[in-house]
Nucleic acid binder design. Structure first.
Length: 209
DNA sequence: CAAGAGATCATCT
DNA sequence: GATGATCTCTTGA
């Protein structure tokens, strides 16, 4: 059994190397690509959960009709208009949560949707939350990963440069990055074809479509 | 394995 | 009142 001390030690180590705000201030498409291979970390009273980011999507600016922010600033999208490095978490289809990292400058609405990770630490915690056993099915999709990691609306607006949810500045170099159009945005007119979904090629943990 | 439907409600019109 | 940055289960080949 992993002692509380060991977990604390791991957490402490991870916390010292988390991505800083300036990472999130870069261009969204670039941030989406550079997040691939990095470690998403969720600290929770139950224990720590981590996973390697496998799949992301970029939602870029007020013109992007695929983005929630294209309809202007609303209570929901306020976080997207705020400064970089905060979490935008929303409920979709009344059932599932999706996690985004807000990017670029304050006033310019943009974010990276984290669509899938390869679970590393906290596997049994994730299994319990997901009620699935297979590692590959624990976090291969935006809703699945939020369920596995215990990410819900209470985390909307949390600082990704804080201690509860962050990305470790540690990189597993992806063999190949694939770019495709984003998922489920057929309504987005000319923007639906922008190749702003990125994933690690050939990895089984990438979400199905 | 692919296709289709149902779940279920916050959000905006 | 309509819709959705999804998931799971069922059906049928």
């Amino acid at each position: 059994m992993l002692s509380r001390l060991m977990q604390a030690a791991k957490f402490k180590k991870a916390a010292t190397v988390k991505l800083a705000r300036d990472f999130y201030e870069q261009r969204t498409v670039q941030a989406a690509q550079r997040l691939l291979g990095k470690y998403l970390v969720r600290a929770h009273p139950d224990g720590i959960k981590t996973g390697i980011i496998l799949e992301t999507e970029a939602y870029v600016g007020p013109e992007d009709q695929a983005s929630h922010a294209s309809r202007g600033r609303t209570p929901r999208t306020t976080v997207m208009f705020g400064p970089a490095g905060f979490a935008y978490v929303y409920v979709i289809y009344g059932l599932h949560h999706c996690l985004n990292a807000v990017t670029e400058l304050e006033g310019y609405p943009a974010a990276v949707l984290i669509r899938a990770v390869e679970p590393c630490e906290g596997l049994d915690l994730m299994r319990a939350r997901r009620r699935k056993q297979e590692i590959v099915s624990l976090a291969s999709g935006p809703g699945r990963l939020c369920q596995a990691f215990g990410i819900e609306r209470s985390l909307n607006g949390v600082d990704l440069c804080g201690d509860t949810l962050f990305v470790e500045d540690r990189h597993v170099s992806p063999a190949a990055i694939v770019a495709t159009p984003r998922t489920g945005v057929d309504y987005a007119g000319p923007w639906k074809d922008m190749p702003w979904r990125f994933y690690i090629g050939g990895h089984p943990g990438v979400s199905k479509r």
